[in-house]
Simulated scan of single mutants.
Amino acid sequence: MQETAKVKVGISIGDLNGIGCEVVLKTFADNRMLDFCTPVIFASSKTVAFQKKALGIEIKYQGVNEASQAIDGKINVVNVWKESPRTQFGEATEEAGEYSIRSLEAAVKALKEDAIDVLVTAPINKNNIQSERFSFPGHTDYLAQELEGNSLMFMISDGLRVGLLTDHIAVSEVAQAITPEVIKEKVAAMERSLRMDFAIRKPKIALLGINPHSGDNGVIGKEDEEVLKPTIKELSEKGSMVFGPYSADSFFGSDGYKAFDGILAAYHDQGLIPFKTLAFGKGVNFTAGLEKVRTSPDHGTAYEIAGKGKADPGSFEEALFSALRIFKNREEFKQLSANPLKKQKRGK
């Protein structure tokens, strides 16, 4: 990519009955956003026109047949479909799920072909999107299949980065799913991401315990003693700055998280409840560990306010700017890696 070219940001539109299209259109209604990137929205001109009118959002865009035709300085809408799907704001319909799949598939295809540089995904409904083509708990698992690398669900905001050892699985399956191999894989993915995506030379990572109080030396479950502690010790002996396991309740309550560059939680709610409490509205879901950059806002379809013009685009905007920062950090990382003499000029 030429230095003068703007980063092409591909955007999958998400569930048409939710707030995805609204936050996207509100973000780019401010023309100054085009100074930072070239948006490429995967939907259709007819769908965007309907949403624009229904929500009362003034915005100009141009329709294109494929992402490679996108023009800098304009909002580009790739016509993934020609028909006009029925929009029922606030309803979880099979039709909306089908079009969210079509948008996502087209965006990921363009990402793999380098027609776009990064991908920002608007929220989907994890139930109505299920089909023979999409049988995943969410975006992260689908992208892990489609793109090269070892994926890590990484929630990020200013000064707080939380990854997960396990993501969309039942709580009853968590302890069994956390093995030494999984821990090593996720720590490696987080370390690499912190170096490559966030310009942190020597990342310091905290692991949260699986059981309450990290098992209290085996009194409340043996997983922390038998799995987490030996693996953390092994990783530390090999040079990784990995610490823990820490009791999750006091770790966040005492601001302990501020001493670390990244945190690995044992399971979904253990990491995401404190993250969203501390960063909601400004948090970003980043799929780390993959060859391509993908981010998403930290909220869902918000059916309860869909179509009412009340959606706050703040988290989507954060997801967009995070994708741009990460992409540029990766480009710099590649250059520095190619010229080791410049490594000393990197961040901390």
Results as ranks from 00 to 15, higher is better:
136 F>D: 02
342 K>T: 14
216 D>Q: 02
117 D>M: 09
31 N>W: 08
206 A>I: 03
26 K>G: 08
237 E>I: 09
304 E>T: 10
36 F>L: 12
127 N>T: 14
57 I>Y: 02
234 E>D: 14
111 L>N: 01
212 P>S: 03
105 E>T: 11
72 D>G: 12
219 V>E: 10
129 I>Y: 06
169 I>Y: 02
153 M>E: 05
12 S>K: 00
339 N>H: 13
64 V>N: 11
222 K>R: 15
218 G>S: 07
321 F>D: 07
111 L>W: 04
3 E>K: 08
2 Q>S: 13
80 V>G: 01
227 V>L: 06
209 G>I: 03
107 A>M: 07
207 L>W: 02
64 V>M: 13
134 F>S: 10
13 I>T: 09
109 K>E: 14
224 D>W: 12
110 A>K: 01
161 R>A: 06
29 A>Y: 03
289 G>I: 11
232 I>C: 01
64 V>Q: 11
248 A>L: 09
348 K>D: 08
59 I>D: 01
183 I>F: 06
11 I>S: 09
43 A>P: 09
337 S>H: 13
70 A>S: 15
293 V>P: 00
294 R>M: 05
2 Q>N: 15
175 A>K: 13
169 I>M: 02
331 E>I: 05
340 P>E: 04
302 A>P: 04
292 K>N: 01
193 S>L: 06
260 F>I: 07
152 L>Y: 07
338 A>H: 00
113 E>H: 08
202 K>I: 07
94 E>V: 13
8 K>Y: 12
252 F>I: 06
134 F>K: 05
54 A>H: 14
274 P>F: 10
110 A>Y: 01
270 Q>G: 09
225 E>K: 12
279 A>M: 12
345 K>R: 03
332 E>N: 01
28 F>Y: 14
281 G>C: 01
217 N>M: 07
129 I>S: 07
80 V>L: 00
47 T>W: 09
229 K>W: 10
287 T>D: 03
178 I>E: 07
177 A>M: 08
154 F>R: 07
201 R>C: 05
329 N>L: 08
158 D>I: 05
113 E>V: 04
16 L>D: 03
291 E>D: 11
240 S>A: 11
132 E>I: 10
164 L>C: 04
310 K>A: 15
212 P>L: 02
14 G>R: 07
345 K>G: 08
120 V>P: 10
33 M>S: 10
155 M>W: 03
177 A>P: 07
87 T>I: 15
104 L>N: 05
313 P>V: 08
145 Q>G: 03
87 T>A: 10
331 E>D: 11
251 F>H: 02
265 A>L: 01
268 H>A: 14
328 K>Q: 15
272 L>G: 05
91 E>H: 03
58 E>P: 07
153 M>I: 02
19 I>P: 13
128 N>E: 02
342 K>D: 09
74 K>E: 15
72 D>T: 12
188 A>M: 08
129 I>W: 04
251 F>E: 08
252 F>Q: 03
279 A>T: 06
8 K>H: 14
158 D>K: 14
109 K>Q: 11
260 F>Y: 05
225 E>H: 00
317 E>A: 12
168 H>R: 02
103 S>M: 10
212 P>E: 06
28 F>V: 00
119 L>F: 09
268 H>R: 06
341 L>N: 08
247 S>F: 01
339 N>E: 11
326 I>D: 04
284 V>K: 12
160 L>M: 13
